[in-house]
Amino acid sequence: MTGNPEAPKAAHGGHAHGANHDHGQVVTTSNERRIRFVLIFTAGYAIVQAVGGYLSGSLALIADAGHMVSDAAALLLALIAYRIARRAADSQRTYGFHRVRVLAALANGATLLLLVAWIAWEAVQRINAPVEILAGPMLIVALIGLAVNVAGAWILWSGNRGDSNLRGAFLHVIGDLLGSVGAIAAAIGIMLTGWTVLDPILSVLVAGLVVRSAWGLVSDSIRVLLQAVPRGVDKIEAERGLASLPGVAEAGHFHAWTVTDETSVATVHVSPAEGTDPLSLPPLVSAWLKERYAIDHVTVQVDPPGKLNTKHD
């Protein structure tokens, strides 16, 4: 809906919206099924890896086992989030429950960062006090883990990459995959040189590779929850661009935020130029914001000429 054809004054004092009022987001059964499969693989292998790490004395395996236990919990949280997000919007939650997925993504990233800190701490202890490591069993378990994690990463990568919940699960699996690669490298290095210190050193390197992805997931989730402008949107530039549209005399009080991974919302005030029909501005403004910034839902308030600059954001 782009205006109220029944009463022109509504365009001055009320709001007019973009064409699409459907706030619902698709929670695909395909994404949910992918995470369920990976959860089963992850939980099952975590047990194998924990036993193998304990028997071989490998920190790389023990750390990765702990990582996978954390991942299993995060994947379970992601599944719960999908179930909740599927619930329909109601009068109290008009945008539905889809931000639960953002909360789950935030939890995934935060737990990953905590686990990285634990791995780094344990690695320092092992460097200061090396322990005996059975490289043969360590290598076998790590190779199995690599195969499991490659399969899990492929399953998640082939899903919807715009879903932060699925992306969080994918990053966890990538962290596991890197852990398996590190454990394989450490096992081979120990077999060839006898340097058991390679195990904690490679654990630290793997942890460092995970930090960047985990922090990106956390920061993106925080941006959504704080209702920061979507990436690529500039408030000042948007107001200037709107003010340059034909029929628009002034534009201001622009606000934009992200509701879920795939939906952005904006509100803006505009004033009509002399001789311009106020009801023509909402669809014009909505279309421009959709094309320029891919904003899905726009609320446009048309103010009388000369009144816009007296308002405050």
Rank of each mutant, 00 (worst) to 15 (best):
T276A: 12
D261R: 03
V218Q: 01
R212L: 07
F254S: 06
D296I: 06
Y293P: 00
V298E: 03
A273D: 11
W257R: 05
D199I: 10
V224H: 11
E237K: 15
V259M: 12
L289P: 00
A294L: 10
I295V: 10
G247A: 02
L242N: 01
P200H: 14
L202Q: 08
P283F: 07
V206L: 07
L209C: 14
E239G: 06
V265G: 04
G275S: 09
E250S: 12
R240F: 05
A228K: 09
G216Q: 14
P278T: 05
S264G: 05
G208S: 01
V210K: 11
A294Q: 13
H255P: 05
V248M: 03
V206D: 03
P282D: 13
A228Q: 12
V265E: 04
D199A: 10
V224D: 10
V268K: 03
V197F: 12
S264P: 00
L205S: 04
D199P: 07
I236L: 11
Q227C: 00
V210I: 15
H297C: 02
A273F: 03
W288H: 15
I201E: 00
I201G: 06
G216H: 05
G216S: 09
I236F: 00
S213I: 01
L279T: 15
S244D: 15
S213T: 02
R231M: 07
G275V: 12
A287M: 10
R292W: 06
P282S: 09
V204G: 02
E237L: 14
T267M: 09
S244L: 02
P283I: 14
V265N: 02
T260R: 08
S221L: 11
Q227I: 07
E250H: 06
F254V: 00
V197A: 15
A207V: 06
V259P: 00
D261I: 00
V285K: 00
A214V: 07
L281G: 06
L279Y: 09
S221N: 09
R223M: 13
V270I: 09
S244A: 12
H255T: 08
H253Y: 04
V285C: 01
D296S: 13
S280H: 05
E262K: 13
T263I: 14
H297I: 09
G241K: 02
P283R: 04
G275Q: 10
G232R: 07
D220E: 12
T267K: 04
A256C: 09
I222D: 04
L284I: 07
E250Q: 14
P200S: 11
L217A: 07
S286G: 11
H297K: 03
L226Q: 13
D296T: 11
L226M: 15
P282Y: 12
S213C: 02
V229K: 12
D261Y: 01
